[in-house]
Every structure is written in structure tokens, then in C-alpha cells.
Write a protein that binds this DNA or RNA. Structure first.
Length: 563
RNA sequence: UGGGGGAUCGUCUAGUGGUAGGACUACGGACUCUGACUCCGUCAGCGGGGGUUCGAAUCCCUCUCCCCCAGCCA
């Protein structure tokens, strides 16, 4: 089961390969799995994997399992399981089976025994350091452990003893008996089981031995009859081990592992270790901080599942590593929301404007479309009064010729309403503009015959008397360098952008925005896409800016400033 | 100086012997009661060198650069 809309499916090497396999009659269906370790929150990189893993069965027939790779109890927690399930669902996907590697511990244990009985695994009583030393180096072969040739019956007794809790943590491990001289280090008798007295979030204290990733993953795939085990590039040189185990174990199916490049994005970090540090050291306000690249963070920021899915489809699937500009994700959000977000007016940094020829105490109701290109999305009525607020940025006393907004003696249209002319600029003692006196032209009301008079600029506004106050949070990139994790000379935290969050506490919104609920989204015209934050409350609304509108003026302005 | 991968417009990505294509960005223009959207147009690429071939991004040789692997993490 997958998300409703089927995004266009460009050919990529995995899709092409599966299609060929189908043509050759190798499969009747595709079964994949999304296998997170429950030791952190899902991020946009996981989304790429999720979209891929659900898309293949969706296209070819089959299904996807959600499998928690919970073989290391020291790092895993139930709360992460909960968040992962929530995030996958929110992205729009429904898994066929909810699986846990820990459900297979007994089966896996049996597989280990069979390996031992066949002389393909042995218990090694050396400590970790010795084993490491014997592994050799990238250029030198390893040396055999003295335990390597012990009788399999002895290994079996020891391994059974390991399970029975007869030995302390770290006293011994189970190792595959492959080849200590293999050029691929993963084949130099890799560790299959270790003793670890640690409470497991699902199996409790039933086990004191836990399988390693290599021993658990492929066999779990086989148990679930996964046809294609899709993973990232760093597991590429584990594939010979993956295949070796499948080949030598009495598993019920023979999955194949296919690797693809993980997602990297600029101006952020993606590794769980670094994300965990950001959270634990308080650089952000939790895993769902809107500046985080986590699914929870993006959701809170205002990203839609559709935008994340289309992004993941757009970037493609290859084996070459790449870094996707964050702006690509943002554009997918804009494209999605542009089509369906209702337009609203909100003033982030208010500047009072008095319409001197507007009758005092009167309210004029203005009809405003919810969407400029789609009348079916309806309209709402806006109050216009003598005192309004406009955006501070929309007025300039010494404006450059290309500035199309309000300036002394200049004209501008109030969006959905009248053309106004700036007659007077009022400043405080320090010279700061605090108020504008303008006149409005009653003939130019939107929709009236006289409204076709053209002025160069249109600005948004709210009625001072009706507007609701709100807190608005503006987000910028979390880091101020494109590759914060790529600096060998500095900790990535040194590249944190101190201005990644800007809180505006005096924004004014059109009154209809008051009851907006979390999960709704709007375009604040001329500003960007905004959503109510989870902190929002009826009497104290809080909005997040998910993304700005594309802003050609900002670029022009920067250019003008540059010369 | 082991093994495994990867190099195609600025970015991402198609293209396994027959005119290197798309998307994004950028730039220019049209439109505009959002400097948004939309539309039109332009710029721009096969890591280097050799070879095979009528013809090479694609096949061969060679060089260079980048990533991953020496956890009882995944």
C-alpha cells in the first residue's frame, strides 16, 4: 500500500533491474522492507529509502514490511519505535507487516547452531582488542584465532553456555569461520553474536546474547521472504557476507541485497550521531524542532507528505553520491502548496497606516479569493477600516526606482481593495517612521469598474481593529556553511547559524486565521507558506514559516545594494 | 602499494556503438491586484590521455580524483 498519488516514475537502476527480473520470470511479486534501527528519529534521508521501498512493490505488485532492526539493546528505545511508525504513516505509507529482528532471535539462534555444527562458526574466547589486532589491516591479512579450529562440539557447548548466561559480558563471541586473509575485511571471521546483559525493549531479559547486524539482517530478510533488500552504499562490501550466510544457512528464501546512494543535503547534517548531539546538547528544541531535517521537524515546520514524496522521487536513485541543495526540497513544498493552500493576509512587522479620507468608525467588507487561479476554493470577507497595518518593508522613504511599493507621494494597491496614496510620513524623535497618512481612491475598489486603473505595486494589509496578534517563527538554515559535517578541522557545531530562528511576537493576522488548527496550511500572500505550530493556542496563535515565496525582489535588492 | 564503489551542464539525472536529452538553478522576456504562479526563450556537460571503429559518454588500455571498509554499531 502506498500513498495515493503516483508520482512519475523515472527509470533508475533498481527499477530497471526489477523490471528485467520480472521479464525473465524470476518473481511474481516484490517484497521489500524498511529496516530502521529504533535509536533515533527518522530524517529526510530515511524518507528516500521509504519512498523507494514502498514504490517498488507498488509498481510491480507485492508489499513492504516495516522491520525494526533491534539487535543492539543498548541504543534502542520504545519511543523511537513509536515515532518511526508515526512518521512512516504520516508520509502516507502502510506497511504489510510490523516486524522486529528480535522476533527472530530464537530462529537466529538455531541458525547459529547449524553454522557451528557445520564447522562454519566457532566460539572465540579472546577479548575484543585481541580480535581487532588479529584482524590485520587494510593491506595485511589477519591471523587465525587460536580458537578457530576447536571442535564444533566444543563451540556448541560454549555457545549454549553463552545463551544460558554462564559467561560474563565480553568473555567470548561467536564468529563465522570464513577467511582471515580475505581482502574484504568483513569476511575475516566476523562476529556473529556477543554477550550483552542489557534489558531489551521487547524481549526484556530473555536473552543475554545478541546477534550482530550481519547475522540478523539478511536472515531476517530471508525469513520474511524479502525479494529485494535495498540498502545504502556503505553495506556494499557486506554483500559477500550477506550472500555467504544465506548460502550456508537453512533459510526459507534467498533475498538479494541492492545498494544505492544515501541522501545528502546541503546546510544540514544527516547522521544520527550528529542529530542526536543537536538535540542532547540543546542546540535545537528537540527532535521535532522545525530546523531539524527529521520527518517530525519537517512536519512541524510545515512540509507536507506530498512534497517530501515528490522530492524523493525527483532526486532519483543512483549509486553516485551527491548533495542535494536544500532549496530543491523547498521548491517541492512550494509547488505542492501553491496549488492548494488558501491565501491569507498577515503582516509580520506592522507599520500603521491611517486612511485619512476613510470614514471613522466604519468597516467596509472586502471579498477576497482564497486562491487566485482556482475559484472553486472559494473566498472570504475581509474588514477594511480607517486604520490598517502594512508591512514595514513595503514602505521606503528613499526608494530606488525599481521599488514598486509605497513611497512618499506614491501609489500602491492594497491587495483585494483600493489604491492608496501616501500623503504624509510620521516619525518619532529618533527619526523612525511610525505611521503613514494615506488617502484611498474609492473608485478603485477591486471588482468595481474603476479598479482597472493600474499601479505598479500591490501590498498586503490587515485592519488594525480586527487583526489578531500572533507569534510568527521564521526559520533559516541551521548551519551557515554548505557542508557542516565536511570540515575536518572544526566540529560541525561551530558552523551553527545563530540566526536560524527568528521570533516575531507582534505579527498581525487577518481575523479568519484565529481558529486555524495544527495541520492546516496557508499562503500568507507575498510572504510564504505558513502553518500553525503545535504551540499555537486560540488566544495566542503561533505560526511557523515553512518556506518563503520565491523572491525575485530580494535578489534585485541585494544586487542594488552590491553596487 | 588491500578490497569494494563512484565520476555526464552550476545541481540532480537519462542515455551500454549512430545527432548528449530532461528537470532544477541562473539569465532574458511576456503576463500579473501576490516582485508569487504561469508561459516563452537563452546559457551550460561526457574527469585526463591513448586505442578499437565509418562512428565512442557507451568497448579496450592507462592515469587522476572522490566515497566506503580494520565496532563485540547499524
Amino acid at each position: 500500500m502506498t500513498a495515493p498519488e503516483s508520482t512519475s516514475a523515472p527509470a533508475h537502476f533498481i527499477r530497471t533491474r526489477i523490471a528485467r527480473e520480472f521479464e525473465a520470470g524470476l518473481h511474481q511479486r516484490v517484497v521489500t522492507r524498511f529496516p530502521p534501527e529504533p535509536n533515533g528519529y527518522l530524517h529526510i534521508g530515511h524518507a528516500k529509502s521509504i519512498v523507494l521501498n514502498f514504490a517498488m512493490p507498488d509498481e510491480f505488485g507485492g508489499y513492504t514490511n516495516l522491520r525494526f532492526d533491534d539487535t543492539n539493546p543498548v541504543r534502542e528505545e520504545q519511543r523511537f519505535i513509536d515515532s518511526i511508525k508515526e512518521d512512516v504513516k504520516w508520509l502516507g505509507y502502510r506497511w504489510e507487516n510490523e516486524c522486529y529482528a528480535s522476533d527472530y532471535f530464537e530462529t537466529l539462534y538455531g541458525y547459529a547452531l547449524s553454522l557451528i555444527d557445520n564447522g562454519l562458526a566457532y566460539v572465540d574466547e579472546q577479548d575484543a582488542e585481541t580480535i581487532r589486532a588479529q584482524r590485520g589491516t587494510l593491506t595485511e591479512p589477519g591471523t587465525d584465532s587460536p580458537c578457530r579450529n576447536r571442535p564444533s562440539a566444543e563451540s556448541r557447548r560454549l555457545f549454549e553456555g553463552m545463551r544460558a548466561g554462564e559467561f560474563p559480558d565480553g568473555a567470548m563471541v561467536l564468529r563465522a569461520r570464513i577467511d582471515m586473509a580475505a581482502p574484504n575485511i568483513n569476511l575475516r571471521d566476523p562476529v556473529l553474536y556477543r554477550i550483552r546483559r542489557e534489558h531489551h525493549h521487547r524481549t526484556g531479559d530473555d536473552w543475554c546474547i545478541y546477534p550482530s547486524y550481519d547475522f540478523a539482517h539478511g536472515q531476517s530478510d530471508a525469513i520474511e521472504h524479502i525479494t529485494h533488500s535495498l540498502c545504502t552504499l556503505e553495506f556494499e562490501d557486506h554483500r559477500p557476507l550477506y550472500d555467504w550466510l544465506i548460502e550456508h544457512l537453512p533459510v526459507p528464501s534467498r533475498p538479494v541485497q541492492i545498494e544505492f546512494a544515501r541522501l545528502n543535503m546541503d546546510f544540514t547534517v544527516m547522521s544520527k550521531r550528529r542529530l542526536t548531539r543537536l538535540v542532547d546538547e540543546g542546540h535545537v528544541h528537540g527532535w521535532d524542532d522545525p530546523r531539524m531535517p527529521t520527518i517530525a521537524g519537517l512536519r512541524r515546520r510545515g512540509f507536507t507528505p506530498e512534497s517530501i514524496r515528490s522530492f524523493c522521487t525527483e532526486i532519483g536513485v543512483t549509486k553516485s553520491e551527491s548533495i542535494i541543495p536544500f532549496g530543491v526540497l523547498e521548491r517541492n513544498l512550494r509547488d505542492d502548496l501553491n496549488a492548494r493552500a488558501h491565501r491569507r493576509m498577515a503582516v509580520l512587522r506592522p507599520l500603521k497606516v491611517v486612511l485619512s479620507n476613510f470614514p471613522e468608525g466604519e468597516t467596509e467588507w472586502i471579498e477576497a479569493a482564497n486562491h487566485p487561479q482556482d475559484p472553486e476554493q472559494g473566498s472570504r470577507r475581509l474588514p477594511l477600516t480607517r486604520e490598517i497595518y502594512i508591512e514595514r518593508d513595503d514602505f521606503m522613504e528613499d526608494a530606488p526606482k525599481k521599488f514598486f511599493r509605497l513611497k512618499p507621494d506614491g501609489e500602491v494597491r492594497l491587495r483585494n481593495a483600493f489604491i492608496i496614496r501616501c500623503q504624509e510620513v510620521i516619525k518619532d524623535d529618533e527619526g523612525t517612521v511610525v505611521e503613514l497618512r494615506c488617502t484611498f481612491d474609492p473608485e478603485t475598489r477591486s471588482g468595481q469598474p474603476g479598479s482597472n486603473r493600474k499601479v505598479k505595486g500591490t501590498i498586503h494589509w490587515v485592519s488594525a481593529a480586527h487583526a489578531i496578534r500572533a507569534e510568527v517563527r521564521l526559520y533559516d538554515r541551521l548551519f551557515n556553511v554548505p557542508h557542516p559535517a565536511g570540515d575536518r578541522d572544526a566540529d560541525f557545531l561551530e558552523h551553527l547559524n545563530p540566526e536560524s530562528l527568528e521570533v516575531l511576537r507582534d505579527a498581525r493576522l487577518e481575523p479568519g486565521l484565529a481558529p486555524a488548527k495544527v495541520g492546516s496550511y496557508f499562503q500568507f500572500e507575498r510572504l510564504g507558506y505558513f502553518v500553525p505550530d503545535v504551540d499555537t493556542a486560540p488566544e495566542s496563535p503561533v505560526f511557523n514559516r515553512a518556506v518563503t515565496l520565491r523572491d525575485t525582489w530580494a535578489r534585485l535588492e541585494k544586487e542594488l545594494a552590491g553596487r
